[in-house]
Design a protein around this nucleic acid. Structure first.
Length: 406
RNA sequence: GGGGAGAUUCCCGAGUGGCCAAAGGGGACAGACUGUAAAUCUGUUGGCGUAGCCUUCGGAGGUUCGAAUCCUCCUCUCCCCA
């Protein structure tokens, strides 16, 4: 099939990338690959530590897909062993060791979700338990001898934890070595990862060199701030947009990001080219309109343009025209909770799942956050007449239609 | 192995016998203003049909009319010495 010119490939590869260590080596690898008509081996390791992939950790996956489109071999490592340790990168405490069952369940959902991004028919898929499971203690010692404590402690995350007296367990120091060992085992030419992975990626280079292999090129992509606009997008912070979320939900979450993150989201979370992005972010386009385009582009990336269009219209209907959303969840109240066709408003909120406790429901009501058929209820002692089909709204964006069941 | 310090509510962190469901900050939620943006302002933030009651301060016992606070043991963490 033949590869494109190395320089052309590099230009595509460079898009939305922070570091390439080293770029001259990458160019050289690309040239040789073309001359020998041999695909490069591009590695991406994913630790199945959470059940969902979000648009933040999807960034390097998209980069892997770009390499794949250029004809290179995508190697996906499911870090079932590394997930047990938990990547200490950026963490301020030891991550909980995950159970084998949890990890394997997550790995399953990962693979399903990755199909939205990568051609999974063409990837080389490996679990790193393949080599770690049978590793002997002497091999571990041998591996651990390859790096010094001082080198490890150069890392800001470890240094900070150490100096502020937060425990660091020995097994956490093993993590970068494990990741590097993966590179050794799959003979990667390039490894992808977020910028916070640079250290781990460089360890891979060192190990390969030590073992007499050609070192991999480390390529890092930016980290994406979550919908809170503050911290890195992550499952545990709940500030993420999952790639399998419903279009409406995806759209809504995208609309809630800060204006100054739009550019970053456009580059990293959509397929839009630079020119259209610049046009949208031009000062005479209202930021809200630009953001709607962004939200559509994100939905379109994981669903399709029709779904994106529908989500956009639906959003406008609810938040611009203040009409009811189309697919209101329907909640049935058990008949025995009604008295003379009435229910205590607090009970209503708890039974319909809006709040977990009575206290929380009381607060919401007292603060004017609850309305029924557009009428605000502020009295937490109120008894509400249940009319099947009535619409309860809690806060700005949670709705449900109420019915009665048995 | 020896010595010292510590574990408080979602997080950080005050509190060293009753005035403590526990200051302050962060986060979160709700309201106002908006564009489901930011900033700002206000309120709420253990449970309970709530002027009251119940359960919380690493765990288990104990002292006391009364314990987050004092004592004993245990678990875990950090620091110093070796």
């Amino acid at each position: 099939m033949g590869f494109r010119k190395a320089e052309e490939q590099l230009e595509i590869i460079r898009r939305g990338v922070i570091d390439i260590v080293r770029e001259d080596e990458l160019l050289d690898k690309l040239r040789r690959s073309r001359a020998e008509n041999r695909p490069l081996r591009i590695k991406l390791g994913l630790d199945p530590t959470a059940p969902d992939i979000h648009i933040g950790n999807a960034i390097p996956i998209h980069k892997l897909a770009a390499f794949q489109k250029l004809g290179h071999t995508a190697i996906l490592i499911i870090g079932d062993y590394t997930a047990m340790v938990g990547d200490p990168t950026g963490a301020n405490k030891t991550r909980p060791m995950l159970s084998r069952e949890r990890i394997m369940a997550n790995a399953g959902t990962y693979l399903n979700q990755i199909g939205k991004i990568l051609d999974t028919g063409k990837i080389e898929l490996v679990y790193n338990s393949k080599w770690f499971e049978k590793m002997s203690f002497s091999e571990i010692i041998n591996l651990a001898a390859k790096i010094t404590v001082a080198r490890m402690m150069e890392r800001d995350d470890f240094t900070q934890r150490y100096s502020s007296g937060i425990p660091i367990s020995l097994h956490e120091l093993l993590y970068p070595l494990m990741q590097g060992y993966d590179s050794l085992m799959v003979k990667s030419d390039v490894e992808l990862g977020g910028t916070d992975q640079l250290f781990n990626l460089l360890v891979g280079r060192d190990l390969q060199r030590d073992w007499g292999l050609e070192p991999q090129v480390a390529l890092t992509t930016p980290l994406l701030e979550g919908t809170d606009g503050q911290k890195k997008m992550s499952k545990s912070l709940g500030n993420y947009i999952g790639i399998t979320e419903e279009p409406a939900q995806m759209f809504g979450k995208a609309m809630s990001i800060r204006d100054d993150l739009m550019k970053k989201y456009f580059v990293l979370a959509t397929d839009l080219d630079e020119k259209s992005v610049d046009e949208l972010l031009h000062h005479d386009v209202h930021p809200r309109e630009a953001k709607a385009e962004l939200a559509k582009a994100i939905v379109a990336r994981y669903w399709d343009t029709a779904a994106a269009e529908r989500a956009s219209e639906e959003f406008d209907k609810v938040f611009k025209e203040h009409k009811l959303p189309e697919d209101l969840p329907e909640i049935l109240l058990p008949r025995n909770e009604l008295k003379d066709g009435k229910i205590w408003i607090v009970k209503l909120l708890v039974s319909s799942g809006f709040t977990k406790t009575n206290g929380e429901a009381r607060r919401l009501v007292a603060q004017g956050g609850v309305s029924i058929n557009d009428e605000i209820f502020k009295d937490a002692d109120a008894e509400v007449n249940i009319i099947p089909g009535m619409v309860v709204k809690v806060g700005k964006r949670r709705f449900a239609r109420i019915g009665v069941g048995d």
